[in-house]
Measured scan of single mutants.
Amino acid sequence: EETVVIALYDYQTNDPQELALRRNEEYCLLDSSEIHWWRVQDRNGHEGYVPSSYLVEKS
């Protein structure tokens, strides 16, 4: 079962390993094994790492 997370803030990045976030957008959580950086996928299928503190699990 996939976990959906919501971005609390915008996040901009130039790092190809990371993914930009848009506030209030939903993302699919792929990997939360790292404490500070979670791997997520956006609705267009793009994947990357984002700061975990910018996300909240959708209830």
Rank of each mutant, 00 (worst) to 15 (best):
E1K: 14
E1N: 05
E1M: 04
E1P: 03
E2F: 14
E2T: 14
E2W: 10
T3C: 04
T3L: 11
T3Y: 09
T3M: 11
T3A: 10
V4L: 13
V4Y: 11
V5S: 02
V5H: 07
V5Y: 11
V5I: 04
I6C: 08
I6Q: 06
I6L: 08
I6W: 04
A7H: 01
A7P: 03
L8C: 08
L8W: 03
L8R: 13
L8G: 03
L8D: 03
L8Y: 03
Y9L: 11
Y9V: 10
Y9F: 14
D10Q: 02
Y11F: 07
Y11M: 03
Y11G: 01
Q12V: 10
Q12E: 14
Q12G: 13
Q12M: 07
T13M: 08
T13A: 15
T13I: 07
N14L: 09
N14W: 05
N14V: 12
D15R: 14
D15Q: 15
D15Y: 06
D15I: 07
D15V: 13
P16V: 10
P16G: 08
P16D: 12
P16L: 07
P16W: 04
Q17H: 06
Q17S: 11
E18A: 12
E18Y: 09
E18S: 10
E18M: 12
L19R: 02
L19S: 02
L19H: 01
L19Y: 03
L19T: 04
A20T: 14
A20P: 15
A20S: 13
A20I: 11
L21F: 02
L21N: 01
L21D: 00
R22I: 14
R22A: 12
R22M: 14
R22K: 15
R23Y: 09
R23M: 08
R23Q: 14
R23S: 09
N24P: 01
E25C: 13
E25N: 11
E26L: 05
Y27A: 01
Y27F: 04
Y27P: 00
Y27V: 03
Y27S: 01
C28E: 10
C28A: 15
C28M: 13
L29R: 04
L29Y: 01
L29E: 00
L30R: 07
L30D: 00
L30V: 12
L30E: 04
L30M: 12
D31E: 10
D31Y: 02
D31H: 04
D31S: 09
D31M: 02
D31N: 11
S32H: 13
S32P: 07
S32W: 08
S32F: 06
S32V: 06
S33R: 10
S33A: 11
S33M: 07
S33Y: 03
E34G: 14
E34R: 15
E34S: 13
E34Q: 14
I35N: 14
I35P: 14
I35G: 14
H36Q: 13
H36D: 14
W37I: 11
W37A: 13
W37V: 14
W38Y: 08
W38A: 09
W38T: 05
W38M: 04
R39N: 04
R39G: 03
R39V: 07
R39F: 10
R39E: 03
R39C: 07
V40H: 02
V40S: 02
V40P: 00
V40A: 03
V40W: 00
V40R: 01
Q41W: 02
Q41H: 10
Q41V: 09
Q41C: 13
D42R: 03
D42P: 01
D42I: 00
D42L: 00
D42E: 05
D42S: 07
D42V: 01
R43E: 13
R43M: 14
R43V: 14
N44E: 15
N44S: 14
N44D: 13
G45H: 07
G45S: 05
H46I: 10
H46Q: 12
H46C: 11
H46A: 12
E47F: 04
E47W: 04
E47I: 09
E47L: 06
G48K: 01
G48H: 02
G48N: 00
G48W: 03
Y49K: 15
Y49P: 03
V50A: 14
V50I: 02
V50W: 02
P51S: 02
P51T: 00
P51V: 01
P51N: 03
P51I: 01
S52Y: 04
S52M: 06
S52F: 03
S52R: 14
S52A: 15
S53Q: 10
S53K: 12
S53N: 11
S53H: 15
S53D: 15
S53P: 08
Y54H: 12
Y54P: 00
Y54N: 04
Y54R: 04
Y54E: 00
Y54L: 09
Y54T: 03
L55A: 00
L55M: 09
V56T: 09
V56G: 07
V56R: 13
V56K: 12
V56M: 15
E57Y: 09
E57L: 08
E57H: 08
K58R: 12
K58D: 05
K58I: 07
K58P: 11
K58Q: 09
K58L: 07
S59P: 15
S59R: 15
S59E: 15
